[in-house]
Design a protein around this nucleic acid. Structure first.
Lengths: 115, 115
DNA sequence: ACATCATATGCCTTTTGGTGCATATGAGTT
DNA sequence: AACTCATATGCACCAAAAGGCATATGATGT
């Protein structure tokens, strides 16, 4: 199905904010589901902001959540929408220069995850 | 060159507003440069808004302008940025359902252009 | 049952973005 | 030079989005 104008705008808006774009970028590049507290540490953003931005991304249909005990894990929603695929292709080539610290913290986080 | 986070956000923001997205969509689908007064008629938006949105799109690097007499023509800026190419691919498949009236008016306009 | 940890959310303030109107600029026309 | 047409822009206003803080919810552990 081809996306409507309004739907496209929802997606573009969702991606027009630094924290949100960083979240999407990280989830795409780390290729792993990540829980809220991990994102908080990695991005060094307050808890309520991370929560809210995750909600916006979910509502836009870009993320999905899975509750596991007291944690909520978020991951990139699989899609067969051609439109979203193009958008994801675009996001995937955003430079990681602005993100070196976050990447380091994230890799560290993922390594030291308790099993 | 890979786009920075901030640059990507500029692009996403530029595309997060109906009038602006319609302008881009039209320019891509009509495959012709269009001047401001034509866009005003086609979109039925006030002059000052069209002007302003065109400016925002230009500043974001999505459009280019050429002055011809008292008219200013706008057209999609050619790019070899991989990022922008993906974005354009996405925009190109937005449904034209919301745009039927605009398309008709636009085709009419282009046909009746004085030479 | 109580305390704690992880996450979400309501309310309020601040910031950002869009619109309307009036006016400015600048080119073409008389 | 005065007038009109096409476009741009400054200012004031309103609406939407983001952020801060406090509190709520809901699961886990004692």
């Amino acid at each position: 199905m081809k996306p409507t104008l309004q739907y496209s705008i929802t997606i573009f808006k969702a991606l027009s904010e630094v924290t949100r774009l960083k979240i999407i970028w990280l989830l795409m590049n780390m290729d792993s589901k990540i829980c809220v507290s991990e994102i908080i540490e990695v991005l060094e953003e307050p808890q309520y902001n991370v929560s809210r931005h995750l909600k916006i991304l979910s509502k836009a249909g870009l993320l999905e959540e899975s509750k596991e005990g007291k944690w909520v894990y978020y991951y990139i929603k699989k899609t067969n929408s051609e439109f979203l695929q193009h958008i994801k292709n675009a996001v995937s080539i955003i430079s990681k220069n602005d993100m070196t610290m976050e990447i380091q913290r994230c890799k560290q986080k993922l390594l030291t995850r308790d099993k």
